[in-house]
Design a protein around this nucleic acid. Structure first.
Length: 292
DNA sequence: CCGGTCACCTGAGTGC
DNA sequence: TGCACTCAGGTGACCG
């Protein structure tokens, strides 16, 4: 589900609402949602104070100060992961909450208002994962993950180098989190449309001017989406509600509708196994951009 | 190195 | 109503 703007929204909502809170108790109702050893996870997280919550690519990163020192909890939401507040799951007592079918982990927070004392992780399709590390383990994990730089902060030179170092099709290269980390299907389609680049163009053939423009357009779109709290199509929302950026998508989810630049119908195709939306007139596969 | 396909899951939408 | 089928914002494994 979520890409960079949505994860950014989720992380900053969390930072505001649970930053500074202490995790008093952890419960996991679906063991596979925690990657690695569950006891290790619980011992790292239980009793820890949440210092801050930030976005790292498409990961939500909780920086915590645990009983045995600093630690980090990472959440990858994949398609349908969400965080929401509720009541600690209990039994008969009316004051207790209940597991929803799709809630898989619960964190009881100290100092939270008594009617919403628990942060739940919910995930309809169960693709997402939670993991926890001490700082040594985190280093190892991040090396193995090999995420690229953030598209919002990467330098144009670095972006040019990373994109053109790859022989694959532009769309695949941008979706690959080792190129840059945070783009997904929606924002790649939107960025390519805004730049007039074909999704199937070989990444290695891009000029410096083209990658510069692509980066500029991606940033413009990502920042506008962050302002709108992201795009809501089905299963996404932050702690404080969903976003509205889907209303200004130019190509994503608009197959058959007229292109906003030239009026030609937007085409849907499949690239890299992902549904891909582009204007065949404004984004021709040849090297040259078509300027009417 | 590269692309294609499947697998992981549930639910919403569509067409018969 | 019901059933069969397709699709979904992500990634990782496997195969040729």
């Amino acid at each position: 589900m979520p890409e960079l703007p949505e994860v950014q929204t989720i992380a900053s909502d969390l930072n505001e609402v649970v930053g500074g809170k202490i995790i008093e108790e952890v419960a996991v109702s679906l063991a596979k949602i925690v990657a690695g050893d569950l006891d290790r996870f619980s011992s790292l997280v239980t009793g820890a104070e949440i210092q801050s919550v930030v976005r790292m690519g498409k990961w939500v990163r909780f920086n915590v100060n645990g009983v045995q020192g600093p630690a980090v909890m990472l959440a990858h939401l994949k398609m349908t992961g969400q965080f929401h507040l509720g009541l600690w799951p209990g039994d008969s007592d009316k004051k207790n909450g209940r597991w929803d079918v799709h809630d898989h982990a619960a964190f009881r927070l100290k100092g939270q208002s008594p009617d919403l004392d628990t942060l739940y992780y919910r995930d309809i399709r169960q693709f997402g994962r939670l993991r926890a590390f001490d700082l040594m383990e985190l280093d190892e994990f991040l090396i193995q993950l090999d995420q690229g730089p953030d598209p919002l902060t990467v330098s144009p030179e670095e972006f040019y180098k990373r994109v053109t170092a790859r022989k694959g099709r532009l769309k695949c290269v941008l979706l690959d989190q080792t190129t840059v980390a945070g783009l997904g299907n929606i924002y790649v389609d939107e960025g390519l449309f805004a730049t007039g680049l074909s999704p199937v163009r070989s990444a290695a053939t891009l000029t410096k001017a083209e990658t510069n423009l692509l980066l500029k357009e991606l940033r413009r779109i990502l920042n506008a989406s962050i302002k709108a709290r992201g795009s809501t199509t089905s299963n996404y929302e932050g702690l404080k509600g969903g976003g509205s950026f889907q209303n200004v998508h130019k190509v994503y989810g608009r197959a058959g509708e007229p292109c906003s630049k030239c009026g030609a119908p937007i085409e849907r195709s499949v690239v890299a196994g992902r549904s891909t939306h582009h204007c065949p007139h404004c984004q021709p596969p040849s090297k040259e951009k078509s300027q009417a």
